[in-house]
Write a protein that binds this DNA or RNA. Sequence first.
DNA 1: TTGTTAATGAAATTCATTTTCAATAAGGAG
DNA 2: CTCCTTATTGAAAATGAATTTCATTAACAA
Lengths: 153, 153
Amino acid sequence: MGRGKCFGQGGWHGKFHGRGYRMTAGREAVINVLSSTKEHLSADEIFIRARKLNPDIGLTTVYRTLERLSIMGEIHRLDPGDKRARFELAESEKGHHHHLVCTKCNRIIDYDDFIDDEVKLLSETEKKLSKKYDFKINNHLIQFYGECKECAE
Amino acid sequence: MGRGKCFGQGGWHGKFHGRGYRMTAGREAVINVLSSTKEHLSADEIFIRARKLNPDIGLTTVYRTLERLSIMGEIHRLDPGDKRARFELAESEKGHHHHLVCTKCNRIIDYDDFIDDEVKLLSETEKKLSKKYDFKINNHLIQFYGECKECAE
DNA sequence: TTGTTAATGAAATTCATTTTCAATAAGGAG
DNA sequence: CTCCTTATTGAAAATGAATTTCATTAACAA
Ligand SMILES: [Mn+2]
Ligand SMILES: [Mn+2]
Ligand SMILES: [Zn+2]
Ligand SMILES: [Zn+2]
């Protein structure tokens, strides 16, 4: 009772449980933070927001939860030029998208325009590269770097 | 006299000088290390090799030189999942290429096969994105993540 | 309800990178 | 070549994101 959405069987609880992990209040808080934003948050930004949902959570738990979710493939870890990693839910309403990264302010802008052509070309390329280099490709990253509107001189 | 190749006017010396910087033994060592490898080295790996060319060089100078070269656009900084940044000369014999990154051993493999189609698509996409998001694109990054031959289970 | 053990928070630690600061040397002027 | 300005340097200290340690807590299967 009083349980948030999607934390029952088949939802997040199930995802953890299925792999022998446990659903805890800390993990629920982190997931709720990630679920309720379109931003690309760093660990400590997630910590600050998660603490509002669960004042007892520690930063360590945030790092550990992010690590676990990353291994589970449920979140994407981004390493912009800026030194701190940033995270976003893999299966958000946003769907498959790529990024524009501002090298001035480190803002990350999602885009999914023109993505179909990109993804199509990429999957062909993946196939060729896999064969030629005997490399098992699991994922790809495309980012454009430059200056965002706000940072234009 | 006794000066290595390409450190005279119009070469590296000129590149620094033109921007009001000075050519020094430390910088020459770092550049020579980068020029003589196809690997993607980290700062401390560069330091170890540079010390063989110039035993007096300090790690701090390596970092500072890499920062300067990066600003000058003469090297590319790569941030693989692994926490240390890696570097490669922008204008090497390797030419424009993209990367396969092994998520097990962090090895980085260059490829330039099939690159023409990629670059062509990317430049079209860049044009459209630039306009739509009012974003000035200077550079792009494409990486495929997976498991290299040596790490295959 | 109980037992097993995954998960936690706080504090300590790691480690790449940056900053500080006094000493050095690149290179233009004379 | 010599002198001078100041960019550059190395060593040591500082920073800061991320990880590890360890004693305590709580998830959840039985
Ligand atoms: Mn995104
Ligand atoms: Mn490369
Ligand atoms: Zn910006
Ligand atoms: Zn590998």
